[in-house]
């Protein structure tokens, strides 16, 4: 039976400063890429630390790769790789030396460590900096070395905590492409923590949104959108704002809701695609020119900002299945 890569119930942890994570119920299937979204201080890093068994939960349970991360932390950590927010490389050592230490700590011989590290650094575009001391590296170069370190032992589960923070746009693009490759290969499970939505939208199968330590929404963007809005919004370009008669006309089309005039035409919501066809037929049949029809497929950004708005309103009901 596939128990999934991660499953948590009621997972909670507080610090002296207050709760960092509250009652987290989260499931991630094997091979999925989950975007764990939320602003700074939302509880993303705390979640990773709990799931990798370096923090003890105050309450709740977690199963990671079939094991309890706090009780069997060592076994869990043998199979996970973490790219921490701070690359955490020893500045006084070369990229290779940093990686060989990590390999030795995972039970590889120094030779095997060097071989794996060399391959990965090459692959991550750091082939020419292998024996350079980390001190002079840019943030992007550090992230690459740290990513190589997280991958040395071919982990089944990869936690990437803010992998693109501090990177310039071109380095961001490079890292995002690398992560996309990593996620595709051997059906590896990836948890990607970020407050940048662009990269999450490109990479993730599912998203989970945290605010103030609470899970606000979880699922694919489309699933969450349906739960949030129930319907999909369609905008029709009529070349000018719709008159009240046109609004009334569309309101009579079965299944159309929230019909309203817009600057360039008319908009309505519907939960069936057929309603869109009926609406267009009605408009054309009544002699109106239709220049364009756009049915809004919600992006991860739309969903995120809608969830954020709900959270800020204090609407606590979680948007999950």
């Amino acid at each position: 039976m596939d128990v999934g890569a991660i499953s948590s119930r009621g997972l909670s942890r507080a610090f002296a400063s207050g709760p960092a994570l509250v009652d987290l119920d989260l499931d991630v299937g094997s091979g999925q890429v989950l975007a764990l979204l939320g602003p700074n201080g939302a509880g993303k890093t705390t979640t990773v630390r709990l799931l990798n068994g370096i923090l003890r939960p105050d309450a709740g349970t977690a199963t990671v790769l079939g094991l309890d991360p706090w009780a069997d932390g060592e076994a869990v950590r043998r199979r996970t790789g973490v790219l921490t927010e701070q690359a955490g490389l020893d500045e006084r050592f070369t990229a290779m030396e940093n990686l060989v230490l990590a390999a030795r700590l995972r039970g590889f011989s120094a030779d095997e460590g060097r071989r794996r590290a060399g391959d990965l650094l090459e692959r991550l575009g750091m082939g020419d900096r292998v024996d350079t001391v980390v001190q002079g590296f840019s943030t992007g170069q550090r992230k690459r070395v740290a990513l190589a370190r997280a991958l040395l032992h071919e982990p089944d589960l990869l936690f990437l905590d803010e992998p693109t923070s501090g990177l310039d746009p071109s380095a961001t693009k490079g890292v995002v492409e690398m992560i996309a490759d990593l996620a595709r290969e051997h059906g590896r499970t990836v948890v990607l923590c970020t407050h940048f939505l662009g990269e999450a939208g490109r990479l993730a199968d599912r998203m989970a949104v945290l605010f103030h330590g609470r899970l606000q929404a979880e699922g694919t963007p489309a699933e969450i959108a349906r739960r949030l809005w129930g319907t999909r919004r369609t905008e029709v370009d009529l070349g000018h704002a719709a008159t009240p008669e046109v609004v009334a006309l569309l309101a009579r089309v079965p299944g159309s809701e929230a019909v309203e005039a817009t600057d360039t035409g008319i908009a309505f919501e519907a939960d069936e695609r057929a309603v869109v066809a009926d609406a267009v037929a009605t408009l054309v049949g009544s002699g109106r020119a239709v220049f364009g029809v756009h049915t809004h497929e919600p992006t991860l950004e739309d969903v995120y900002f809608a969830v954020e708005a709900r959270a800020l309103r204090g609407d606590d009901a979680e948007v999950t299945a």
Binding site: R77, G88, L89, D90, G107
Partner: peptide, 14 residues
Amino acid sequence: DRRTLETLLHSPVR
């Protein structure tokens, strides 16, 4: 200070 501790904690070292 060097922020290298977190990485060690995330490793299987006991």
